[in-house]
Nucleic acid binder design. Structure first.
Length: 440
RNA sequence: CGGAGAGUAGCUCAGCCUGGUAGAGCACCACGUUCGGGACGUGGGGGCCGGAGGUUCGAAUCCUCUCUCUCCGACCA
C-alpha cells in the first residue's frame, strides 16, 4: 500500500480526550475515531489489526474443535424473559422497540439465543460434546465508558458456548477452551495469566479471567510469579487428550482478581519473593455454568438410558476489540506502537527518503513491487515529506520492520533495515533484503 | 449514579474576569527554497464560538435551561 494513496490520518498532537497510552497511540496513528462515548469507527489501519486478531482467535477456536456460525446483534426479548435475564440485566442492556412495538435488545451476550438454537435441533447425547462460537459486535451500555476500545460500549467479542451431557464432560470442554485461550493470546505476543474470577451475571460456579499485566490495567490482581512465564502448549497440542494437567499446573498456583482475592490464602500459599501484586487487563474469560440456562429453557438431550437430561453449559469470551488496546498497552515505547509481528497491520514500512528523486523512487518502486509479489504487506511511504517526518510516522505506526532507502545508501547499493522492537539497524543489499523478507 | 471539569477551525489551545468586526500554532491548498530523525518563506481556504431562551443598542464573553464529552469513585468482556 502506498501511503500517499492510503487513508491514514496521522496526528502530531494528542487528542485531549485520550488519557491512557494505548488510546492516545491508536488515535495518533490513525487507527480509530470516536463517534460517541464508548463507540468507535475503525479506520483502515486499525481495522487491519482488528481482523488479524480476529483471525488468530478463529484459528485457535477451530483448532480446539469449536464450530463457527453467526448470530444477530438484535435479539427478541422473549428469549431473555424465558431465562429471567430480561429483568436481571438492568440498564446496561440496550432495549429497542421495532415499528410493531415489539421489544428487542442489542445483544450484550448470547447464552439465551444459542441455547434456543441448540434445543431446536440437538436431541441426542450422541451429538455431544458440541461447541459453537461466533465473532460478533456486542453492546453494553456502560455507565462510564473509558480507556478507548478497552472499555467501549460497543465491542467486538468472540463468544463460544459448549454443550455437554454432564459436568465431567463440561469440564473437559472448559479445559479445551482454557488451553485454546493460552495459545490464542500467546500467538498475539501477549503473556496472559488465568486467574480465578467472579462469575458475574452470566452465572455459574467456575470461572477464570485471562489477564495481561499492565500498569494501566483496570483491576488489581494477585498471583504467583511463576505463572508469568509458564510455557504455553504448542500447535501440536491434542485437544482430544486429557488437558487437565495443563490446567492444573496453573490452577495449583495462586492467582486471583481483586473480586475473589483472599489475602490470608495468598500469604500462606505464595512465598514472599514470588508474590505478584499488579494491575491487569482482562482479555478473555471462561465460565462453566452448568444447567443455569438449560433447565429454564428446557434444553434437553436424550441420554444413553433413554432419559432426557438438561445439558451442562459453558461460555467463553474473548474481547477482540479490547485486545487491540491491550496489545498497544503492552507493546509500545516513547516513539509509538511496537506491534508484535502476528498482529501488525503491515509487515514492513518502506521509507523513501527522497521522494521525487528519480533513482531513489525507482529503487523503492522496485523493492516495493518485489516484496509485495513475495507475499509481504508493505506500507510504502512515498509521501513528499522530509525524512524526519517519515521516520517519526514509521515509529508511531510501529510496523515490525523499516526498510530505509535514500540516495546515500543507494550509492553503495545498500538498504537500511531497522527492527522496530530492538532498534537494531543493519545495511543490506537489495538481494539480501529480498532473501530475508520474501515469505517462505 | 455521586463528585469534578471541558465544549471556540480537522488537531492543540488563547480570547470570557472587565460585552464592541472571531485569533495563534499545527494540519490543508498554491508557488518557491529545502530534504539521512517531525524545515522555511509568501499567499490562500476553512468557524451560527455545542444548542435553546433571556439581559443589552450590541453577547464567544453576563444569566437560565439543555445536550455532549472527559476525569475520580461505585459497576462491568
Amino acid at each position: 500500500m502506498r501511503l500517499s494513496r492510503y487513508f491514514l490520518p496521522l496526528l502530531k498532537e494528542t487528542p485531549s480526550e485520550a488519557q491512557i497510552v494505548s488510546h492516545r497511540l491508536m488515535l495518533r496513528s490513525g487507527m480509530l475515531r470516536q463517534e460517541a462515548a464508548g463507540i468507535y469507527a475503525w479506520l483502515p489501519l486499525g481495522f487491519r489489526v482488528l481482523q488479524k486478531i480476529e483471525q488468530i482467535v478463529r484459528e485457535e477456536m477451530n483448532r480446539a474443535g469449536a464450530i463457527e456460525r453467526l448470530m444477530p446483534t438484535l435479539q427478541p426479548s422473549e428469549l431473555w424473559k424465558e431465562t429471567g435475564r430480561y429483568d436481571a440485566y438492568g440498564p446496561e442492556m440496550l432495549r429497542i422497540k421495532d415499528r410493531h412495538e415489539r421489544e428487542m435488545l442489542y445483544g450484550p451476550t448470547n447464552e439465551d439465543m444459542i441455547t434456543e438454537i441448540f434445543r431446536a435441533y440437538v436431541k441426542s447425547y450422541k451429538a455431544l460434546p458440541m461447541n459453537l462460537y461466533h465473532v460478533q459486535w456486542k453492546f453494553r451500555d456502560e455507565v462510564r465508558p473509558r480507556f478507548g476500545v478497552m472499555r467501549g460500549r460497543e465491542f467486538l467479542m468472540k463468544d463460544a458456548y459448549s454443550f455437554d451431557i454432564d459436568e465431567a464432560g463440561a469440564r473437559r470442554s472448559y479445559n479445551k477452551m482454557y488451553v485454546a485461550y493460552l495459545r490464542t493470546f500467546s500467538r498475539m505476543g501477549l503473556k496472559t495469566i488465568p486467574m480465578r474470577a467472579e462469575t458475574g451475571p452470566i452465572g455459574g460456579d467456575l470461572s477464570h479471567e485471562f489477564i495481561v499485566l499492565a500498569e494501566t490495567g483496570e483491576s488489581q490482581v494477585y498471583c504467583h510469579k511463576d505463572l508469568i512465564d509458564m510455557p504455553v502448549p504448542g500447535a501440536d497440542v491434542d485437544f482430544d487428550s486429557d488437558l487437565s494437567p495443563v490446567v492444573q499446573q496453573r490452577t495449583d498456583l495462586y492467582a486471583a482478581t481483586s473480586d475473589v482475592h483472599d489475602e490470608e490464602r495468598f500469604e500462606k500459599e505464595v512465598p514472599e519473593d514470588k508474590r505478584v501484586v499488579a494491575r491487569g487487563i482482562e482479555v478473555g474469560q471462561v465460565f462453566y455454568f452448568g444447567t443455569k440456562y438449560s433447565v429454564p429453557m428446557k434444553a434437553l438431550v436424550t441420554g444413553p438410558d433413554g432419559k432426557d437430561v438438561p445439558i451442562h453449559g459453558g461460555s467463553y469470551g474473548v474481547g477482540v476489540s479490547r485486545l487491540v488496546g491491550a496489545i498497544v498497552e503492552a507493546c509500545h515505547d516513547d516513539a509509538g506502537i511496537v506491534w508484535p509481528e502476528p498482529v501488525a497491520p503491515f509487515d514492513i514500512a518502506l521509507i523513501n527518503l527522497k521522494s521525487g528523486d528519480a533513482k531513489t523512487d525507482a529503487a523503492c518502486e522496485d523493492l516495493y513491487s518485489k516484496l509485495t509479489k513475495a507475499g509481504r504487506d508493505v506500507l510504502y511511504d512515498d509521501r513528499d515529506e522530509r525524512p524526519g517526518a517519515k521516520f517519526a510516522s514509521a515509529d508511531l505506526i510501529g510496523l515490525p520492520w523499516q526498510l530505509v532507502i535514500g540516495p546515500r545508501g543507494l550509492e553503495k547499493g545498500m538498504v537500511e533495515v531497522k527492527n522496530r522492537a530492538t532498534g537494531a539497524k543493519e545495511e543490506l543489499s537489495m538481494d539480501a533484503v529480498l532473501n530475508r523478507f520474501a515469505k517462505s
